[in-house]
Design a protein around this nucleic acid. Structure first.
Length: 883
RNA sequence: GGGAGCUUAGCUCAGCUGGGAGAGCACCUGCCUUACAAGCAGGGGGUCGUAGGUUCGAGCCCUACAGUUCCCACCA
């Protein structure tokens, strides 16, 4: 015994975590030094927004990355986990605008320069918060390489890519229908629009045909856009309207003459079959307008109020204008009818405001040529999605991709490196502001006011963070990265864009695997969200249960790509596991001698139980490593859990107790050694998942390592395969379980010792059972263990159990009720009969014997034999009881 | 309209290439046994959504259907 006896009986994460993390930091374990003798293993973090607070999604995502990184580091790779943050243009700008409005200020009040100054201050103040939170969950990132999307180097990368794509004509500026968010006051990309089902109306409006009494009725969900109508379209094959094609209608309220045109776009079956065409406010109408060379009249301002083109409705908000228009039309008798209509309305993914499709001059990325190789890289397996089904989602998006609107009417972000000559209108795309216009030599040049979509810079993250466009050592060594870990909801925004950007700019894939996980939901299965207030704060969970427990709860029992519900109960049981390990370790340590030294351990002195657990550990190492290699982290963790709790704690520790308690026992050092060895290796296997407690325990064990973080990952070793000992221990454990079983059934607690008689004809089994005597005594309440080859002298009033190969008799004297015992055995007999029948059924099936693999057939035959023997023994026992 | 996932014990979920259904929690019965009551020992509980099919053999593969969740498209 030693000091470890006095260690707390419960594991206290607070005493361990921060101290341990600091130690790792100080030792520089997180830092990756390029080592050409090693293979690199790289992960770039999905950069959290500087506005962000750690939520469960981050906790899961980063735990998964940390598991992979820690595992690979132990395997001897030169691992780099590169961290950083994203400037998150819209989200951050919104925060700053909000803060300013509390001071009664607007962006325009203070101007661009002052605004950016504030933004950088804000970043300085809050940008590091999420990074500190990542440290709390144990992330082993190389903080010396931390990057920010608006760092100088990364901004260079952005400009470089913009210029390059512009010169290749893959970036262009054009006037098109874009998604406009009136609240954020910026355009957003298609991917940033979320559709919501709204209960709306379908207003049928009568447009008078010029020089006639006729009307043509159009149906719309957005009547306010009619102010910008420049045509009415019908299907050319629609006989109802054939005679009207080419005629003119008077646009109500505006009294403008607009033509009736024919276009295939119109669906005869839908609505009235006649469509008002508003090229400046609808993407389809825009296309129709282009085909028919229609005028584009934009009737709305950027804040979604009506503009001067809206006539009497100028100044109205879009919805007020809508109400007034309906009212006015009704008064004019031009409102044909109002139908209920549920339809999907696009909203801004940041602020949830209904977006307005508006014609606007913006910058776009021409996507088709970039999408093509990006599809190819996944198709040919250069990049693999895990699980594979997500590649379908990716194809589906990439194959139907539209051009990407990248300009934003925001200030916080990378300003577009395009300059316009105020004299001749020339556009110059350049990293630096040109002195003179190359065309007219004017010096009146101004830079484009807009910034780029945040995702434009994050698309470059896997190489911009490594130094690109400079040709750095880091870039050469660590690129391409190995795996990207993210949730499925970000495949379009980010993963897809990184893929084509990596291929386009680096000529190589940005990563080899995309490891996709699901969303963490609340206990009711709802998505956690700020607005619902159902989010569970990971930091609170850490505070209450420890980081390791949180990590365990997030990873165990979950399979890749699937959503999961988060429950405190699960964290509790994870915490219990941590505690279990803690106490197992306490036990091991308090049974060490003063200065444990295992240099004199003799493998020949290993007992059956030692070889059994070593063999089991060996198998575990193999399986866990295989599972992790396939990203089956939940399965791997489950196996470690079961090994530690069920095999190591519940069995092995119980097995070795007598050897430890007896200081004279000659294999006591071997037991200590095996405890140390198995625990140390279990901790290694567990370390990627539960880094803190494993480090703490490992530090107390006898090892050559200064930290488990940099210890060598265990490897499968043929030398530790002890099949025969595994079988023997299986027999002993089966026997103990059976005896406990009987005793529980008979209400005889293990604390009441009873004699144990084993009957077995098999020499090896006899020896095994004899060797197990002390175990039977300790774990099955045996007062004495007798092993014999026949049934001579077995008392009639003994309770019996037949296990594979051996008969167990427990003479319980007056405690036994013979009638009850017969009943029990009859039941047993019936069960065995059922098993025999099942095996027979298979073996008598010609199809089975002809087609099943030999190993399966042999297995079945062996089972049948086994059950037949057991059956016979039960029968015999019954016969003797009935006498 | 197109696509994907899910449906397994009371609850939450695992189940790897098809070869006798598992865990955690909950529940029941014993135990404060000198590592751990956040524990130990034992136990009950499932015709694996339904119906077909392939196969010697299906929770797993195929088809249809039902329920459910999500993604994409966006017919004005």
């Amino acid at each position: 015994m030693n000091d470890f006896e006095n260690i707390a009986k419960t594991y206290d994460p607070k005493q361990v975590e921060d101290r341990t993390y600091d130690k790792w930091l100080k030792k520089g374990y997180f830092h990756a030094d390029i080592d050409e003798s090693k293979a690199p293993y790289t992960i770039v973090i999905p950069p959290p927004n500087i506005t962000g607070q750690l939520h469960m999604g981050h906790a899961l995502d980063n735990t998964l990355q940390d598991i992979l990184i820690r595992w690979k580091r132990m395997q001897g790779f030169c691992t780099l986990w590169l961290p950083g943050t994203d400037h998150a243009s819209i989200a951050t700008e919104a925060r700053i605008v909000e803060a300013m409005s509390e001071e009664g200020l607007t962006k325009d009040d203070i101007g661009r320069e002052a605004f950016l100054k504030r933004a950088w201050e804000w970043k300085k103040l809050y940008g590091g918060r999420i990074v500190e939170q990542l440290k709390k969950i144990g992330c082993s990132c190389d903080w010396e390489r931390e990057r920010f999307t608006m760092d100088e180097g990364l901004s260079d990368a952005v400009r470089e890519v913009f210029i390059k794509l512009y010169n290749k004509k893959l970036i262009y500026r054009g006037e098109r229908i874009i998604n406009w968010c009136p609240k954020c006051c910026t355009s957003i990309s298609d991917a940033e629009v979320e559709f919501e089902e709204h209960e709306g109306h379908f207003w049928h409006i009568k447009y008078p045909v010029k020089d006639s009494d006729e009307f043509i009725v159009v149906a719309t969900t957005r009547p306010e856009t009619m102010l910008g109508d420049t045509a009415v379209a019908v299907n050319p094959d629609d006989e109802r309207y054939t005679k009207l094609i080419g005629k003119t209608v008077i646009l109500p309220l505006m009294n403008r003459e607009i033509p009736i045109i024919a276009d295939e776009y119109v669906d005869k079956e839908f609505g009235t079959g006649a469509v008002k065409i508003t090229p400046a406010h609808d993407p389809n109408d825009f296309e129709v307008g282009m085909r028919h060379k229609l005028e584009q009249i934009r009737v709305m301002n950027d804040d979604a109020t009506m503009n001067e083109k809206a006539g009497q409705y100028q100044g109205f908000d879009r919805y007020d204008a809508r109400a007034k228009i309906i009212k006015d039309l009704n008064e004019l008798g031009l409102l044909d009818k109002i139908a209920g209509h549920t339809h999907n309305v696009g909203t801004c993914y940041r602020c949830n405001t209904v977006i307005e499709p508006i014609m606007s001059k913006q910058w776009f990325v021409h996507m088709k040529p970039l999408a093509k190789p990006a599809i190819e890289y996944v198709k040919n397996g250069t990049i693999k999605f895990v699980p594979d089904r997500f590649s379908k989602i990716y194809y589906n998006w990439m194959e139907n991709i539209q051009d990407w609107c990248i300009s934003r009417q925001l200030w916080w972000g990378h300003r577009i490196p395009a300059y316009y000559c105020l004299e001749c209108g020339e556009t110059i795309v350049s990293a630096e502001k040109p002195e003179l216009c190359p065309k007219c030599k004017s010096s009146k040049i101004e830079q484009d006011e807009d910034t780029l979509d945040t995702w434009f810079s994050s698309a470059l993250w896997p190489f911009s963070t490594l130094g690109w466009p400079k040709d750095t050592e880091d870039l050469r060594y660590f690129y391409p990265t190995n795996v990207l870990v993210t949730a499925y909801d970000i495949i379009f925004f980010w993963v897809a864009r990184m893929i084509f950007s990596g291929i386009e700019n680096m000529g190589r894939e940005p990563f080899k695997y995309v490891f996709i996980h699901g969303i963490i939901r609340d206990p009711q299965g709802k998505k956690m969200s700020k607005s619902l207030g159902n989010g569970i704060d990971p930091l609170e969970i850490i505070d209450g249960y420890g980081t390791d427990a949180l990590r365990f709860a997030l990873v165990s029992g979950n399979s890749p790509g699937n959503d999961q519900r988060f429950s405190v109960e699960k964290v509790e049981s994870s915490r219990n596991f941590a505690n279990k390990i803690w106490n197992a370790s306490r036990f091991v340590l308090m049974n060490f001698d003063e200065n444990p030294d295992f240099s004199a351990i003799d493998g020949k002195k290993f007992e059956m139980a030692d070889k059994w657990i070593l063999s089991r550990l060996n198998t575990l190492i193999k399986e866990v490593t295989e599972n992790m290699g396939k990203f089956e982290l939940g399965i791997a963790l489950q196996k470690v859990y079961e090994f530690i709790w069920d095999e190591f704690c519940d069995w092995y520790i119980e097995f070795v107790k007598p050897r430890l308690y007896d200081r004279e026992n000659e294999s006591r050092p071997e037991a200590q050694y095996v405890l140390n060895h198995v625990l140390a290796n279990s901790m290694k296997l567990l370390h990627p998942y539960m880094p803190f407690i494993t480090e703490e325990i490992y530090g107390h064990l006898v090892t050559d390592d200064e930290s488990i973080m940099i210890a060598k990952w265990p490897e499968y070793n043929d030398k530790f395969v002890f099949k025969s000992d595994e079988e023997s221990m299986q027999l002993i454990m089966d026997a103990i379980r059976n005896i406990r079983n009987i005793r529980a059934e008979m209400n005889v607690p293990v604390s009441k010792p009873a004699k144990l008689i084993f009957v077995s004809e098999n020499k090896k089994q006899q020896e095994t059972l004899k060797a197990g005597a002390s175990l039977f005594q300790r774990l099955a309440g045996a007062s004495e263990t007798i092993v014999q080859g026949d049934k001579d002298g077995i008392p009639v009033d003994a309770v019996s159990s037949i296990i594979s190969g051996a008969e167990i008799y427990i003479p319980l004297e007056d405690l036994i009720d013979v009638k009850k015992e017969i009943e029990r055995l009859e039941k047993e007999k019936a069960n065995l009969q059922k098993e025999i029948n099942r095996a027979d059924g298979k073996l008598n099936n010609e199809g089975f014997t002809a087609k099943a693999p030999k190993s399966v057939i042999d297995e079945e035959k062996a089972k049948k034999e086994k059950y037949k023997i057991m059956f016979k023994k039960v029968e015999e026992r019954l016969a003797s009881l009935k006498k």
